[in-house]
Design a protein around this nucleic acid. Structure first.
Lengths: 335, 335
DNA sequence: TTGTACGCGTTATCAA
DNA sequence: TTGATAACGCGTACAA
């Protein structure tokens, strides 16, 4: 864009002039659209090399009506979950020559609408991850941002959707704990406004129905390492024998604090997380959790984005299911 | 960019026509450049609302000669270090109305040159993080990508630079360990091609000079959790009483494996990391490490990028120093 | 196969 | 204060 070397960057016109051809011809050898005489082509090539010419991406964008860029908007880049998604979609996009514009709404739902729309306007499509904005904001975004794909925010609206099945994931860990003889569980929930927290709560309710005698206390905590650590004392004051954490971050924070307090896990208390972030297998004790295919999610998102950009209608929402990863933070309920 | 609702998006011309004014006037009320008659302005406003008009970002980019977007290229988005930088720079940029295009070179140095240049061409400036490309590639990038800022890749070239002082950081932990009576250290290095690894090695050499009798073995390991875990056995076979890991990832992986093996830390072995990622304080035992101001780095990077875009000459390279954070993975050398 | 001419949607210049 | 009109740099019908 900017040229600080004093002399303005060469344009296609400059190349055409030095090569003694028309701009159309230069454009042709550049894009290989039509065939061009070998001799002319070579003159163009040398002119390009001589002038160190590079086509203006901006001008191409305007002329072609597309930017070959997609927008990815997430609530928090610090969350390993979104990092994994971003990572996956970046790789997929790169393979098709697309770049990625990233937006971080800093966990502030009131910024999401603007952020999503602004980012979208500079790109060809939008990948909106786990937005917590109110329904009406979401409706506005859905109305303007097509083609787009929505991740982890179930909606009846006809838009391409991809979501982790947290309800199913909680079912997995609840069954696991019930099988180990636990009857009094504690669910450490994330932000109430989060759709994925609501999903988890449904999973909790399902489990209670499925296992008569199982009781699950609910508590709102947060979604971070610190939140998990801070809640340790309250957890110990409860009569639960097992804890289902909102995600691995909360679980690992809790585990660390319990270790400091000398509480035996899983002897006295079992702890499970959800997500299976890379650190989960390196915690002490190694965390039992639900593995969700995060990179695959990014890849799938890219596939859906391509469909959407190609004008293909949105398929049914895709629910990706996780699998239980039994490690060492869970064990039989204490007698 | 794309409009799937069948009807093409309204342009400034459409607004002008429905409002019965010229496009110039519409542009004026849009950007508030000059004053415009109140009545006309209102007609324009209503026309805009009625047509649901939004100016084309692409067209503005071409006309204004800038995109209000910066490119950030990192070796690996999965690394908490780069995530933190990306996070910081995204926040800073957002405050000034800039967006961020992110590129991930997947730890493949041969992709860096192209990735950096491609990303740069769609943006107003480039933030290049810890590139491992050969010097000649770097020279090529520096020649074309201005305005830009370089992070963690010291070079004599006159470009704005920002770097963690890993040499100093290693000095900090080495002094700490020497003070605890350790004489036989083991340095677990990262990729040899990495400039930050070379910096650390200088720090190691400095420490050996500063502390007569101190010997430090060097070993190349990698930069990941898995790498740290995998090297545990080799570490135990050495006669070192303390380990300096390339970064916190390696340290945490190592710690986890040592715990599995029943090795007492810091009783038998002390372990230190570098970076102070969020997980460092939640490992077992809590990791002694060097805290580097990562978010601040992102913020500083944005400040420097603004300077560069304003045409201000590059200041001297900025070296940011870390501070030792003593936690519980280090203790007196065993007798 | 090549060149001419126009369109992409804005902003900026210059008269009026 | 307003409106023609010319950039911005490229792609592409269409004609030659």
């Amino acid at each position: 864009m900017t040229d600080t070397r004093g002399t303005r960057a060469a344009t296609i016109g400059d190349v055409a002039r030095t090569a003694g051809v028309s701009r159309a011809t230069v454009s042709r050898v550049l894009n290989g659209r039509a065939s061009v005489d070998r001799a002319l082509a070579e003159r163009v090539e040398t002119a390009i090399a001589q002038l160190d010419y590079r086509p203006s991406e901006t001008a191409r964008n305007l002329s072609l009506g597309r930017t070959n860029t997609i927008a990815v908007v997430v609530p928090d880049l610090g969350n390993p979950m979104f990092q994994a998604i971003l990572h996956g979609v970046t790789l997929g996009a790169a393979e098709d020559g697309f770049q990625v514009l990233v937006g971080d709404t800093r966990e502030r739902p009131e910024l999401e609408r603007r952020a999503a729309l602004d980012a979208r306007r500079r790109c060809d499509a939008l990948l909106l991850c786990a937005p917590r904005m109110p329904d009406e904001d979401l409706a506005a975004v859905l109305a303007q941002a097509a083609p787009m794909v929505l991740i982890n925010r179930p909606t009846p609206a006809p838009v391409a959707q991809l979501a982790m099945d947290y309800r199913h994931a909680i079912g997995l860990v609840a069954d696991h704990l019930a099988g180990l003889g636990h009857r009094r569980l504690l669910y450490l929930g994330g932000p109430l406004s989060s759709a994925s927290n609501r999903l988890r709560l449904e999973g909790v309710a399902d489990a209670e129905k499925r296992h008569p005698g199982l009781v699950v206390q609910r508590q709102e905590v947060g979604a971070s390492l610190d939140a998990g650590s801070d809640i340790a004392d309250a957890v110990l004051r409860s009569d639960a024998t097992a804890v289902i954490a909102f995600n691995d971050l909360v679980a690992i924070g809790l585990l660390s604090r319990l270790d400091d307090l000398g509480v035996s896990v899983p002897g006295r208390l079992s702890v499970v997380g959800v997500d299976d972030i890379p650190f989960a297998r390196y915690s002490r004790p190694h965390l039992t959790t639900v593995s969700l295919p995060k990179d695959a999610l990014g890849t799938q998102a890219w596939a859906q984005l391509k469909d959407a950009m190609a004008g293909r209608p949105a398929a049914e929402p895709v629910w990706v299911e996780g699998t239980l990863v039994e490690r060492h933070s869970t064990g039989p309920a204490p007698a």
